[in-house]
Simulated assay, not measured.
Amino acid sequence: MTWPDSSPAAWGPSSRTAAAPSPPAALTRNRSASGTPCEQREESGYGTQDEAIERLTQLYAEKKTTAPSVAAARRELGQQTVEECSKQWRPRQRNLTDCSTGWHVDSSINVHIVPRLGSRKLNSVTPMVVERFLDEMETAGSAEETR
């Protein structure tokens, strides 16, 4: 004897067909100097699981070949915000002071980059974040051109 609702059709849509699957994500786990886990971050946007695995393999290889002092400097830099980094970076760019180039760079940083990305930590600025920023800038430019 079978139960009335035992057929798969009576169960409703399966989770496989109800929603489109999300793209695979590569999950990275970082460790502190003592070897304990300290941060976990997910990177999304990989088309296939193989691409996500390839990214994790690449990160693992980089970690194994990076000197501890370099890794510490990267961690420290990664905790800075975009705004903090730009304030430290700009004075070191002496060659940008010719003509009005330095003023133009300062203006672009203060008007476009800092309001949109300034509070973001550098280690969270991924290629996808940059792509969205550029798309937003292009859209804003197109809107101004049509006025």
Rank of each mutant, 00 (worst) to 15 (best):
A18W: 04
A19M: 07
P21L: 01
P21Y: 00
P23H: 07
P24T: 04
P24V: 03
A25P: 02
R29Y: 09
N30D: 06
R31V: 04
S32P: 00
S34L: 01
E39G: 06
E39D: 07
E39M: 09
Q40C: 11
R41M: 04
R41P: 00
Y46Q: 02
T48Y: 03
Q49H: 05
D50H: 04
I53L: 14
E54V: 00
R55A: 13
Q58H: 12
L59R: 08
E62T: 01
T65Y: 04
T65M: 12
T66S: 10
A67L: 12
P68I: 01
S69R: 14
S69M: 06
V70I: 14
A71E: 03
R75D: 04
R75P: 00
G78E: 04
Q80W: 14
T81H: 05
E83Q: 15
E84H: 15
E84L: 12
C85G: 09
K87E: 15
Q88H: 13
W89F: 13
W89A: 07
R92F: 02
R94E: 02
T97S: 09
T97E: 15
T97F: 03
S100V: 05
T101S: 06
H104K: 13
D106C: 04
D106F: 01
S108Q: 14
S108D: 12
N110M: 06
I113P: 05
I113G: 10
V114E: 08
P115G: 03
L117K: 12
G118W: 06
S119Q: 15
K121L: 14
S124L: 14
S124G: 13
V125Y: 05
V129H: 05
V130K: 07
V130C: 12
F133W: 15
L134H: 03
L134T: 02
L134Y: 02
E136P: 01
E136C: 04
